[in-house]
């Protein structure tokens, strides 16, 4: 029962958020506020992520969740090597 209630509340919240954020002006206002207040933005993202409301892969660094894949590690090493040689 508890699971269902939680699920229903989560669905409602997501729907409400999508609805409001789908309106361009509301979205722009929200983005403006968030841009002016980075801690608030970070906090909101964290809460949303923990509640599984957003898929937040793009906004957290890989090491916060999983190490890089083998290929990504190589690309990272390549980026770092290029940076070192570039900025010498």
């Amino acid at each position: 029962m508890l699971v269902r209630v939680k699920s229903a509340v989560r669905t409602l919240l997501v729907k409400a958020m999508r609805k409001t954020m789908g309106l361009p002006h509301v979205r722009l206002c929200a983005l403006y506020v968030l841009a002016k207040c980075p801690p608030l933005k970070k906090r909101l993202r964290l809460v949303a992520m923990r509640a599984h409301l957003i898929e937040d892969w793009s906004n957290t660094t890989p090491t916060d969740r999983l190490p890089l894949s083998r290929r990504a590690e190589r690309i990272y090493a390549d980026l770092q090597r290029t940076l070192r040689q570039e900025r010498k």
Binding site: T61, E73, L79
Partner: peptide, 12 residues
Amino acid sequence: KGWLMLAEAIAF
């Protein structure tokens, strides 16, 4: 950490 994210995004 932006470089880590970029490396991951490229690999992906």
